[in-house]
């Protein structure tokens, strides 16, 4: 009898601890220091973070890439995810969000209603982004047009449909430390690290994932199966790519390989972004990639 009661008590504690541990993390407005928002800098963050590549409508080009109506499909082993509307429409987009709710969504993957987002939204990567950058991004996104397209529900089966379980996933796999460590990194490599590991979220495609869909940091940027099911996404470590720093920076600008073949597939969207970055940022990305260890 006494034993049963202990088991019961432990079970209650266990569930309680589980609920507490998997509870969504939130950024409060009161915790944020004063900040003078700079939407022009926010536009640079928007470009570097590739927001339009997922949240603009399929095939949108030019100015239309600033209408963040969502709808693109992302196939995965867990189901198909649809990018939501993140335009300034208050009913279907994020127009009525507060700044703190926006920061919570980006850095912790938690909705204003306290729900965990699926990590198809790369918040585990964006958690490395600077708060000041994200506040400028928010200021910039508020200047973008509203669109009333409703977001499409994700097509995800049981058990992945239990969002609370994502709290456990986050506990296991959230890690906002830099993947490339080292006390003697040059300012240029550190800038490249920020662009690759935080804003650019390159690892989301170029790094393989484990059985639960988390990035395998031990094989960072060493190439991965294509989540769409076709072919492989290439490794971009120095040995896998074999390109000079200039080759990389030029590719990110004009979209041509050293042999003047053109970029294809999803990289076309990426180059639509990187070609708009300052040249120093492309050079910094190249310096970072050249500083990576060889793939195993």
């Amino acid at each position: 009898m006494r034993f049963l009661r202990i088991v019961l008590a432990l079970a209650v504690i266990g569930v309680g601890a589980g609920l507490w541990l998997t509870a969504p993390q939130v950024i409060e407005a009161a915790d944020l220091p004063d900040h003078d928002p700079d939407p022009a800098h926010g536009e640079q963050v928007f470009i570097a973070a590739g927001c339009a590549s997922c949240h603009a409508a399929e095939e949108a080009e030019g100015e239309a890439r600033l209408i963040l109506s969502g709808g693109r499909a992302f196939a995965s082993d867990f189901g198909t995810f649809y990018a939501p509307n993140v335009s300034m429409n208050s009913e279907h987009g994020i127009g009525d969000w507060s700044e703190a709710e926006f920061l919570t969504a980006i850095r912790h993957g938690v909705s204003p209603g306290g729900q965990h987002y699926y990590p198809a939204f790369p918040y585990t990567t964006y958690a490395r982004a600077g708060i000041a950058d994200l506040r400028d991004l928010w200021a910039y996104m508020q200047t973008l047009p509203a669109d009333a397209t409703p977001s499409r529900a994700h097509d995800v089966g049981f058990p992945f449909s239990i969002r609370r379980a994502l709290g456990g996933w986050k506990l296991l796999f959230s890690d906002d430390d830099w993947v490339m460590q080292g006390a003697d990194l040059s300012p240029q490599v550190m800038r490249g690290r920020y662009l690759v590991e935080a804003l650019g979220h390159c690892g989301e495609c170029h790094t393989p994932r484990n059985a639960l869909g988390a990035l395998d940091h031990g094989n960072w940027l060493s190439g991965a199966p294509n989540p769409s099911g076709d072919g492989r996404i290439p490794g971009i470590t120095p040995d896998a790519l074999g390109w000079s720093a200039d080759d990389i920076a030029n590719y990110l600008n004009d979209g041509f390989t050293p042999e003047f073949d053109s970029a294809g597939g999803s990289m076309v969207e990426v180059i639509a972004n990187t070609s708009q970055l300052p040249a120093e940022d492309r050079t910094a990305i190249a310096a970072y990639l050249r500083a990576l260890p060889a793939s195993e």
């Binding site: 080009e61 076709d230 072919g231 492989r232 041509f256 053109s262 597939g265 969207e269 639509a272």
Partner: peptide, 19 residues
């Protein structure tokens, strides 16, 4: 730039993106 984009936008949809 426009020339590179025209190559890319065709290869985006119509060519297998294998390395």
């Amino acid at each position: 730039g426009p020339l590179g984009s025209s190559c890319g936008s065709c290869h985006e949809d119509f060519r297998q993106s294998d390395d």
